[in-house]
Computed example of a mutant assay.
Amino acid sequence: MQAILLVLLLAWTAAPPAAAARQDQNPDEYVAQMKKGDAALRSRKYEDALKAYKKASSLHNKTSAEAYAGMARVYDAMGAYKSAADSWADALENTSGDPLREAVYRNQRGASLFAQSQNGNDKRLKEAEAEFRAALALDETLAIARFNLGVALLRQARDEEGLPELKAFLAAAPRAPHAAEAERMIENPRRARERYAPDFAIVTLDQQRLALEDLKGKVVLLDFWASWCGPCKLATPGLTRLYKKYGDRPFALVAISLDREESPWRQYIDENRMTWPQYWDRGGRIAQLFGVRPIPTYIVLDHEGIVRTTKEGWGPGTDGALDGEIGKWLKRIPPTSSAPQRD
Rank of each mutant, 00 (worst) to 15 (best):
E325Q: 09
E194M: 12
L322V: 03
R133A: 13
S337F: 08
G217A: 06
S96N: 05
A39W: 04
V104F: 01
T236C: 06
H60A: 14
K45P: 12
R101K: 14
E102F: 06
M34W: 11
G305D: 02
V151R: 02
R273A: 05
P189H: 09
A69C: 11
K331M: 14
P27A: 12
L289Q: 14
K54W: 11
P250H: 06
R146C: 03
Q108E: 04
L239E: 04
A103P: 00
Y105P: 04
Y279V: 00
G247W: 08
A85R: 00
N272T: 01
K62S: 14
G120S: 13
Y75S: 03
E140H: 07
R266M: 09
P164Y: 09
G70Q: 10
T310G: 07
F224S: 03
Q278Y: 03
V74E: 08
A321R: 14
I4L: 15
Y298S: 11
A172F: 05
S58N: 11
F290R: 15
R249G: 03
M274C: 02
R106F: 02
F200V: 10
N26V: 03
S96C: 12
L210D: 02
P16Q: 15
Y243S: 15
R342T: 10
A77Y: 00
P99K: 07
L113S: 00
P198Y: 14
L5R: 09
N148F: 07
A19H: 15
A85G: 00
A226G: 06
R209N: 15
E131T: 01
A20W: 07
N107A: 15
A287G: 09
Y196E: 01
V7T: 13
A67M: 01
E261G: 07
Q207S: 10
R293V: 15
L138S: 01
A137S: 15
N61R: 08
A91K: 03
A145R: 04
D302P: 13
K233T: 13
D248N: 12
M78T: 04
R249V: 05
S337H: 09
L154C: 14
Y298I: 10
R73F: 13
D98G: 13
E213G: 04
G120N: 12
Y105N: 12
T275K: 10
P250M: 06
P335Y: 09
A65L: 14
L5Y: 15
P237Q: 03
K216T: 10
D302W: 13
L210S: 01
R282S: 02
G313W: 11
W228V: 08
Y243H: 07
G320L: 15
D214R: 07
M274G: 01
G313S: 07
T309N: 07
L239R: 04
P99G: 14
I295H: 12
R332V: 04
Q23V: 12
P316I: 15
A49P: 04
